[in-house]
Simulated assay, not measured.
Amino acid sequence: MADADGDAQPLVEPVPGAPAATADLGGETGLLIADYHAGIEAGLRYERGVELDSAADERRERLLSLLARTGADRLVVLGDLGHRIGSTGDAERAELAALLDAVGVPVTLALGNHDPGVAEAFGDRLRVTDAAGARLGDVGIVHGHTWPAPDVLAADVVCTGHEHPRVKLSDEVGGGRAEKAWLRGPLAYGPFADRNADLPDWGEEPPELVVFPAFNDRSGGTWVNVEGQFLAPYLPDGLASGEAYLLDGTRLGDYRRV
């Protein structure tokens, strides 16, 4: 895709100030998010005894606002649309039903580790890929808890969730804060070739990897500038020279040295 001046536009472009991106999916525009975690409040109550009021309405309205703002033709969720692993509880099912009633565009879900029950409950209302992901035009999508399929790795850009990347930032007086972050950079060939001997050589233009921040504000995250925190089997080795960006677009540089 090119702009009016003929310059190439990124296939995947973050929406300023939001944990979401638009993507050219080949004939349609997608709004991509990761880690929605519907019903998380009920899950936290069951798993940890934490009592929180539901933010289901706020999550849905925030997503609907982004769909309207971007004019996307399709919603793509990079895994963990739901929260309860293996089954959908009543709160999660109700939240997902209300969301799918409201979105107004086709929905594609890259199956996440929290999503098996979602496929069984709502498979007639959205397309669900297998855990190794799928390719939509020149964009590969995968959740990130398993290795991507070779076809996904043949895309120009590979989008993944699962990590919920965050950075710890310090100020001059010793204070600190946590911020959601994007990770972007070229995929390193070695770890994927070691896993799949038939993987074609990428040459001098490897696919770009985009690791999405979590859409859900209550789902925790991976501290990308703290050693040993990663969850995906191909990180950090598969992103040897990636950079971190805040939601407002601030470039932080090498994600491991922020």
Results as ranks from 00 to 15, higher is better:
residue 184 R to E: 10
residue 122 F to C: 10
residue 144 G to K: 02
residue 146 T to Y: 01
residue 121 A to N: 12
residue 161 G to A: 03
residue 217 D to W: 11
residue 165 P to H: 02
residue 183 L to Y: 02
residue 193 A to C: 07
residue 112 G to P: 06
residue 153 L to Q: 03
residue 200 P to K: 00
residue 194 D to Q: 14
residue 203 G to E: 13
residue 182 W to F: 07
residue 147 W to I: 00
residue 183 L to G: 08
residue 182 W to L: 06
residue 208 E to K: 03
residue 164 H to F: 07
residue 105 V to F: 03
residue 191 P to F: 05
residue 111 L to A: 14
residue 220 G to M: 13
residue 128 V to E: 03
residue 131 A to E: 15
residue 109 L to Q: 07
residue 183 L to V: 05
residue 203 G to F: 08
residue 144 G to A: 05
residue 126 L to D: 01
residue 110 A to Y: 05
residue 110 A to R: 05
residue 211 V to E: 06
residue 112 G to R: 06
residue 113 N to Q: 09
residue 215 F to G: 05
residue 164 H to V: 11
residue 175 G to P: 12
residue 166 R to N: 04
residue 150 P to C: 12
residue 200 P to L: 07
residue 191 P to Q: 11
residue 182 W to D: 01
residue 142 V to S: 03
residue 148 P to A: 06
residue 181 A to F: 02
residue 176 G to R: 13
residue 210 V to C: 13
residue 139 V to H: 09
residue 162 H to Y: 04
residue 128 V to K: 00
residue 207 P to H: 10
residue 115 D to L: 07
residue 125 R to F: 07
residue 161 G to S: 06
residue 216 N to F: 11
residue 156 D to W: 03
residue 197 A to R: 15
residue 166 R to F: 02
residue 125 R to D: 10
residue 163 E to K: 03
residue 109 L to P: 08
residue 190 G to V: 04
residue 214 A to N: 07
residue 181 A to R: 03
residue 170 S to Y: 14
residue 153 L to V: 02
residue 180 K to P: 04
residue 220 G to W: 05
residue 178 A to S: 14
residue 193 A to T: 06
residue 201 D to G: 09
residue 204 E to P: 11
residue 105 V to W: 05
residue 123 G to M: 13
residue 150 P to R: 13
residue 145 H to E: 14
